[in-house]
Amino acid sequence: MQISINGRPRELDVDVDTPLLWALRDDLGLTGTKFGCGIAQCGACTVLIDGNPVRSCVTPVSALEGRDVVTIEAVSGPEAEAVQKAWVGLDVPQCGYCQSGQIMSAIGLLKIEPKPDDQAINDAMAGNICRCATYPKIRAAIHAAAKTLEG
């Protein structure tokens, strides 16, 4: 089947029940999107579908007909730039494994809510687990990115 990944159509030779996560990682070599739990509890597998954060580990490729998937490898735009710059500038990552998902969720938040307060950050990021507990820096980086977007 064919799906749109990072702006171009990609042919997939997998069973239609295959979660997008494994199609991305194993079949397309896009390994920036991570496996953490497989049941949409940790958020490490977050991608943007039609601009909104989605857990790719519970999204079968059969659900992607006509939809547009963007992964950490190709995410772009002012929110993405601001978020990733803040993430590097504040040295958010520790082990780094969950950070692709954290970043995709943060971008998704800022696209809808460009100036989130602490509660909005808590609500948006509640689905992303970081076992290193980099949460204070994640919060600071989202605020910093919002400031950048403000111009």
Partner: peptide
């Protein structure tokens, strides 16, 4: 919530 809507995890 913005950034964590039902559709983040629940499909059709």
């Amino acid at each position: 919530a913005p950034g964590l809507q039902c559709t983040t995890c629940h499909g059709e």
